[in-house]
């Protein structure tokens, strides 16, 4: 799924990266907890989050995330946008809440990164 399709599905606003909407996204994950993102994120992931501080973008950069979607109409501050531009990480903002945003993407075929661990 391309970022352009994701933007359309989530009726999202592009905060940074209007020229990068052709990028293909393979999988996504949603969390406000960067600890989880660092431990379970995969390279190339689309990160959906409600956390808008600088760490959300730094974390995305560290794990090689492809783009960030902020949910519930949230947006990072100027400092965050500057960082996203420096690291060339596209940023979108959707009015949908986390559950709905993830559900929309998942039901349209974008898989998650979770692995079910059986405790053996």
């Amino acid at each position: 799924m391309t970022l352009k399709e994701i933007k359309k599905l989530l009726q999202a606003e592009v905060i940074y990266g209007i020229d990068k909407l052709e990028e293909e996204i393979q999988w996504a994950g949603g969390s406000d907890l960067m600890s989880d993102v660092l431990a379970f994120g995969k390279p190339g992931i689309l990160l959906l989050t409600g956390l808008t501080n600088a760490q959300s973008i730094r974390t995305a950069n560290i794990i090689d995330a492809k783009a960030i979607v902020y949910v519930r109409g949230k947006k990072p501050d100027k400092e965050g946008i500057k960082l996203a531009r420096e690291k060339e990480i596209p940023i979108l903002s959707t009015k949908y809440m986390m559950y709905t945003a993830c559900g929309l993407l998942f039901s349209h075929g974008l898989p998650g990164v979770s692995k079910i661990q059986n405790n053996k």
Binding site: D32, L33, S35, D36, L38, A39, L51, N53, Q55, T59
Partner: peptide, 8 residues
């Protein structure tokens, strides 16, 4: 801040 899950 998005941290403190004891995973680091």
């Amino acid at each position: 801040m998005g941290f403190g899950a004891g995973l680091g």
